[in-house]
Amino acid sequence: MNPTDPIAIDRRMAIKWLFAAASSLTLMDKLHAGDEAPLPQFEAGGYGLDSNLLKTYKPGEVWPLILTPTQRRATIALCDIIIPADNHSPSASSVGVQDFINEWVSAPYSWVGSPNSNHAEAKDVILYGLDWIDSESKRRFGASFADLISSQQHAICDDICYTATAKPEFKKAATFFSKFRNLTAGGFYTTPVGMKDIGYVGNIPLASFDGPPPEVLKKLGLA
């Protein structure tokens, strides 16, 4: 962007102003902390209210990533158990879903996705699960999850893949697996190969919008 560009100047000013405002806000909060309701507040450490929407971001660029090398290995292995390569598309780890999960676990926000979620708690579930799955692997098969053979990995995942039927001793791990599968799916299907796999064919300019094709109308009983 050209430095004399009026928009660029506005952006810089806006960012400067954001930083300046942070301290006075804290004071404001204290002023009415006693009798006022805690309305949701501006959160530090994120990308802010006015980030550049055109830029391509990489995990780790805005906030530091916190997974240890051991947790990362388990993450990659789990991603590919959930979304392995098949004849439609490659595996989740081959398109970097593990980096998205790392970015997600490391996010500085009080919630991500839904304001009803509690990110600190959700993050603890993931961290707990990554550690659990390695200890369970060692207990059952004497090696980390990432080093197990496929049948051993499946033996563990079969016990935790569905919260509704998981045995009591696996309930907590099943909650983890469910959350982790959501993250893997969300991370994978938002990539170009994931979008193609799931059958999304939009995001391209069209000369006209013709509605559903005849074969769709027929299938729906609308033809």
Binding site: G46, Y47, G48, S51, L53, V112, G113, S114, G186, T190
Partner: peptide, 11 residues
Amino acid sequence: QAPLRGSNTPD
């Protein structure tokens, strides 16, 4: 191309 796959956040 976005942080957190474009998820909703407090920001």
